[in-house]
Every structure is written in structure tokens, then in C-alpha cells.
Design a protein around this nucleic acid. Structure first.
Length: 416
RNA sequence: GCGGCUAUGGUGUAACGGUUAACACUGGAGCUUGUGGAGCUCUCAAUCAGGGUUCGAUUCCCUGUAGCCGCCCCA
């Protein structure tokens, strides 16, 4: 046993956060790239901000939020006595930014961002303390077409990941309708909240238990199964016209206690073993009320990297890891280093990603290193090759080799 | 915040409460080798922490910690 054991630091990452070794990093990058590509395809511009925000930004919305900030965020006091919070979500930040330039921006404003966010929670499947989250929003439009566009983008993202219509379902709810039903049932504000909390849990509950608790509110379950409100019907029609076939009305969609005020939606995994909402969004009346008096409507959604990664992994939709390096140059002796470097520079100048071995180890070990890193192609530089100007290139995945003139190498790799 | 399960080298596993904690892979050193990612030899490296039961604990019990899973929550 090592004497210094107790003095050495753990190699584990901090609780609830992840290390991204190259393979995981590539996976995250893939997800972020799909998000970015789809958002930009729809004409959304990217914004960014610091991870740090004044804690007041999250506390300001009421007592509930104060609890949330206290118990479920990373909050600390800086050296100047300011209370600071690591952003747990992006919406307050974007509200702040939009409010700050309200008069200068053009509406409808289409913005997206892919921030990492932090929540002080107990980690479990699909939930860590740091995650990346796509945020897509339209500001300054009350048109139902904006709601439809946001849902279409969510749909497009799923399709871009390779999901089929049968893999997920988009459930659309209406906060207005719930308020109407609650009023009809004569519920006060507190009871309405409890009512919504019950609806939110419906998907995970035993139907009988749900019916029982529902009855306790003094109403019949049938109020839930009346026809979709006019607005939702119109929305569903628009979506269908645009090719979104797997959307449906579901009165139990309430999105927790979020700031949504009208249409809301949640994307559900259809796999029975993962019967829960993966992500969602909706419409809010006045995003910037914390900062000014003029209302600014918006509609948007957010989705996290961990839940979508689980979804994709279960379905085999995550791409296999490929390192950025296309070719590895092994050298048959350290004295050939400069020659190998020169070949590498030729290839790099042509746009090929190349790494060069320093020749400290035997060829076999060099190959092993390249192979472990997942590099697909190997070139050996030796006296013979340099003299003849012909190199053997080896595919490390298949073991196949072929001869190639030095002048053809770059083109070969670029054409892969 | 609450509950369940788990914890042995870097990784994956093994060891009726009883020898020196075993095996494989990986890592390191060496030999061999100008078409090779192989082989052979040697080698580094572990019982999560603290307490208890016991003649004796990797094994049983308690506490802590960590991981996984679920609940609460999920902005």
C-alpha cells in the first residue's frame, strides 16, 4: 500500500458533474451540433452570457423561487459581499438581456443559446448537477404561428437526431384551459396550484389513485376529457399541415410551476420503460416584467443534454466515436523525426488532421498508441519510404494496407 | 430532504469468518522484431473511512462517505 495514499487527491470529478474524456466530449459535441444546426436552420441567432448571475435574478419571482434558490442552486457571496448564483436556467438571463436592449431589437426576435447550467440536486438517471441545455425562444409575437414554429423546431430537433414519429409524442396542454376548469370547479389560488401539481403527476400515477385524488377536488374527471380548446385545435391543425403528425392534446400537461401562461407542450418518450416528459416549453405573457412595465410576450422551449442522450443511447442513435485525427505517422527511428514532421506539415497544409509519433518506442507500440486513440489510418516513415517516395498506408480498423505515392496522400485522406 | 441497492489494484472479476487476498486485461521494464498493433520474461498496483462483534473480519453489525436507482422537486 502506498504510504502517500491519504495525501493523494481523488481522480473522481466533483459530485454530480461529468468529466468528458474524448469519446464523451465528442458525444456532447454531436448533440450540441445538432441543436445548433437546427436552431440556425430556422433563422435563430445565438446569444451567450456568463454562468454567474446576481441571486436576485432568480429570487424575484416570489417565495417559491426563494426556496428554490436557497436549496437547489449554487449560491455564494463574493469578496465584495454580493450574492451570486450559478445559473440554474437560461430564461431569466435572456429576459434580462432582451429587456436591456428592448428598443433596439427587432421583433419577432428569434434567439437560441446552449448554456451549461447548474442545479444543486441529488444526481440520478438523466439528471446531474451540471448539464447543457438548448434554449430556443421567439420574443414579441402573440401569433399562434409562433407557438407552432417552436413546436416544429422541437420536432425537427428530434428528427435531426434520427428519431421517428413513433419514438416520441408531443403532448400539448393549455394553461388557460386549466385555469378555466379550476374556476369552474371553484378552486382558489392555493387549490389551483395543488390541482396543477396533481395533473403534472398524472403520467406517473396509478389511474385509480389519480381518479381518487382528482375527485377530492370536487369535480368529475370528465372535465379533462372534453374536446381540445379552440386554440389548441387550431394549433394542432397548423402542426399537421407542416408535417408534425405525432402531436396531440393532453390536458394534464402543466409544466410544473413554470411561468407559462397559455399553450404548453411536453415531448414524451414513447418507450414504456421511460414514460416521462423529456423536455418541453410554452408561451409566457410577459417575460421582462422584472425589468420594465411594457409587456413582452414570448414562446420557447428548453431541452437538456442528459435526457436526450439517454433517449438516443437506448435507441442506438448515438454515433460511434471517431477521433478528429485522420492519420498517425509512425517513425522507424527517432532520427527520422524531422522527415516525419515534414510529411505531416505537407498533409496539414492540405487540410488533413495528422499526428506524428516522436519515435521513442518501437513501431509496434506506436501502432498500439494510434489504435488506442481510435485513429483510423497509419503511415510509417522509414528510410525506404523516404527514398522511394511511396508509403504504405494502413487502415487500423480493418488491417488493410495499400501503397501510395507521397503526392497522392493528402488527396486520399481528404476524399475519405 | 426521504428511501432501496452497492463498495476488493487503473478496469472487470474471485476468495466457507481462518495460509502470503487470486485471475484476466491495462500500465512499466526488458528481450525479440524494418511491415510491425504480436510473443516471451520480469514488474507496479487493491479490501472506501471510522468504530464494533470475534482468538481471528474482504466476509457479520453500526456510522460516515461515494456511486447507482427511485421519491420529493424539476425553473
Amino acid at each position: 500500500m502506498s504510504k502517500n495514499k491519504d495525501e493523494k487527491l481523488s481522480t473522481e470529478p466533483y459530485k454530480g458533474v461529468r468529466d468528458f474524456y474524448p469519446a464523451e466530449s465528442a458525444q456532447l459535441r454531436y448533440i450540441l451540433n445538432v441543436w445548433r444546426t437546427v436552431a440556425e436552420r430556422w433563422g435563430y441567432a445565438e446569444y451567450k452570457a456568463s454562468i454567474l448571475e446576481p441571486s436576485d435574478l432568480y429570487k424575484a419571482k416570489g417565495a417559491d423561487n426563494e426556496e428554490l434558490v436557497k436549496e437547489q442552486t449554487y449560491t455564494f457571496t463574493d469578496r465584495g459581499g454580493r450574492e451570486v448564483t450559478l445559473r440554474p436556467e437560461m430564461t431569466p438571463t435572456v429576459a434580462r438581456m432582451v429587456a436591456g436592449r428592448r428598443r433596439e431589437l427587432g421583433y419577432p426576435l428569434r434567439w437560441y443559446s446552449i448554456p451549461n447550467c447548474f442545479r444543486y440536486e441529488r444526481p440520478q438517471r438523466g439528471r446531474g448537477r451540471e448539464f447543457w441545455q438548448l434554449n430556443v425562444d421567439i420574443f414579441g409575437s402573440t401569433s399562434l404561428a409562433a407557438d407552432a414554429e417552436i413546436i416544429q423546431i422541437a420536432y425537427d430537433v428530434m428528427k435531426a437526431f434520427g428519431a421517428t414519429d413513433g419514438d416520441f409524442v408531443i403532448k400539448i396542454g393549455s394553461r388557460k384551459e386549466i385555469n378555466r376548469v379550476a374556476a369552474e370547479m371553484g378552486l382558489d389560488e392555493a387549490r389551483t396550484k395543488q390541482f396543477m401539481a396533481l395533473l403534472d403527476r398524472k403520467a406517473k400515477m396509478d389511474p385509480e389513485e389519480f381518479a381518487q385524488q382528482f375527485a377530492a377536488f370536487g369535480a368529475n374527471e370528465s372535465v379533462l376529457y372534453s374536446a381540445a380548446p379552440q386554440e389548441v385545435q387550431a394549433l394542432l391543425e397548423q402542426l399537421r399541415a407542416m408535417g408534425v403528425a405525432n402531436a396531440e392534446y393532453d390536458p394534464s400537461v402543466v409544466r410544473g410551476f413554470a411561468y407559462y401562461t397559455d399553450i404548453m407542450f411536453e415531448v414524451f418518450d414513447t418507450a414504456p420503460e421511460n414514460n416521462r416528459a423529456m423536455f418541453g416549453g410554452g408561451r409566457y405573457d410577459n417575460l421582462t416584467e422584472l425589468f420594465d412595465d411594457e409587456p413582452l410576450p414570448g414562446v420557447g422551449f428548453g431541452m437538456g443534454d442528459m435526457t436526450i442522450a439517454d433517449f438516443l443511447e437506448v435507441r442506438g442513435l448515438l454515433p460511434a466515436y471517431m477521433p478528429p485525427t485522420v492519420a498517425y505517422i509512425a517513425v522507424a527511428g527517432a532520427e527520422l523525426g524531422p522527415e516525419a514532421q515534414q510529411l505531416a506539415q505537407e498533409l496539414r497544409a492540405a487540410g488533413v488532421n495528422v499526428a506524428v509519433d516522436f519515435g521513442e518506442k518501437k513501431l509496434g507500440d506506436q501502432i498500439k498508441a494510434a489504435s488506442k486513440g481510435g485513429v483510423p489510418w497509419l503511415i510509417v516513415v522509414g528510410q525506404d519510404e523516404l527514398a522511394s517516395g511511396t508509403f504504405n498506408i494502413k487502415n487500423l480498423n480493418t488491417g488493410a494496407e495499400e501503397k501510395m505515392a507521397r503526392s497522392q496522400l493528402a488527396q486520399f485522406f481528404l476524399n475519405l
